[in-house]
């Protein structure tokens, strides 16, 4: 369990993280989302004690990260920036970390194997691709068989196979009862991997919710129906997995089934439809909508900006 309480970080007069509180629970994957510069990496560095908070505090389990007698067994972390000496081999890099906790060589070999790096183990990290570097970072994070895993953009630089591998890995770590906290820019990726979401923008908490709730509230996959016989239609369509909300009288917002099914059902029962509109908003758009005011580095397209 990770707890952030009123975490605040200022660099000079720039506030990177502001009064951020949230809890990350064991047994599920929690996605940490936010646009560039939102403060995700800064928050993770504060949780790991690398940067000290200007105010507030972060704990892992019952105490601060640094207060654990065997931090590597408590928390495994993949940081955003490369944190290796490129002159060492992958094997020796992991061994230097393993020694601090008396972790045996067999465990180092195991995590190398787990991340598909066995063949590259004795090559210097200098020659590694971006994806191999990520894999090595993940190998280091898993080294202590930790109860909590904190990964800053783990899919960054991975090929589709690697992305799928991460997705499966994160879910299996959570299924084993571990706390999994993983940052990303991509709502669509998190929707596939995470159950819980912590969304921030400009260092502030924007949403602390579940993926299911976010999808429901975002209106993604919703079909809007306007009909004089709303109650009848709602009764006909209701069923497991179908979520129907009534907007104004005569307007239904239906989630969990598609426009074709709704249209056919209405036709079969002779219900007139005045409007049948699948919602255009995708999950990603809903995320962008939520974070719009909090985007640090808004891009302006030349010409269009004028």
């Amino acid at each position: 369990m990770i707890t952030a309480q009123q975490l605040t970080k200022r660099y000079g007069n720039r506030t990177a993280v502001s009064d951020l509180s949230f809890t990350v629970r064991p047994g599920t994957v929690t996605g940490f989302l936010g646009p560039n510069g939102a403060g995700k990496s800064t928050t993770m560095r504060m949780i790991l004690g690398l940067d000290s908070p200007t105010r507030g505090r972060a704990t892992i389990g019952d105490r601060a990260y640094a207060a654990h007698p065997a931090p590597l067994r408590e928390v495994g972390a993949l940081l955003e920036a490369r944190s290796v000496h490129p002159g060492r081999t992958a094997y020796h890099h992991l061994m230097t970390l393993a020694h601090t906790h008396g972790i045996p060589r067999s465990r180092v070999e195991h995590v190398l194997d787990l991340t598909g790096l066995t063949d590259a183990a004795h090559r210097r990290i200098k020659g590694f691709s971006l994806g191999m570097g990520q894999r090595l970072g993940i190998a280091a994070a898993l080294l202590g068989d930790p109860a909590t895993v904190i990964l800053d953009e783990p899919v960054n630089g991975l090929d589709p196979e690697g992305v799928l591998w991460i997705r499966t890995l994160l879910k299996s770590l959570a299924a084993q009862g571990r706390t999994v906290f993983v940052s990303s820019h991509l709502m669509s990726e998190m929707a596939l991997t995470a159950e819980h979401l912590v969304i921030i923008g400009r260092g502030r908490l924007l949403a602390d919710t579940t993926v299911a709730d976010f999808i429901r509230e975002s209106g993604a996959g919703t079909v809007k129906v306007v009909t004089p016989e709303a109650t009848t239609l709602a009764g006909l369509l209701s069923g497991p997995g179908v979520d129907i909300t009534r907007d104004t009288p005569g307007t239904l917002l239906i989630h969990g089934t598609d426009a074709e099914h709704i249209g056919r059902t209405a036709a079969t029962h002779g219900i007139p439809l005045f409007e049948l509109t699948p919602s255009a908003a995708s999950l990603e758009e809903a995320f962008m909508e939520l974070t719009r005011d909090a985007v640090e580095f808004a891009a302006t397209v030349e010409g269009a900006a004028a």
Partner: peptide, 23 residues
């Protein structure tokens, strides 16, 4: 997921702590 999460790392704690010698 599992109502009683298994704490993955408590069982194999032989000598887990950081010691000056290990550093």
């Amino acid at each position: 997921t599992a109502t009683t999460p298994t704490r993955p790392n408590t069982a194999d704690r032989t000598t887990p702590d950081i010691t000056p010698r290990r550093v």
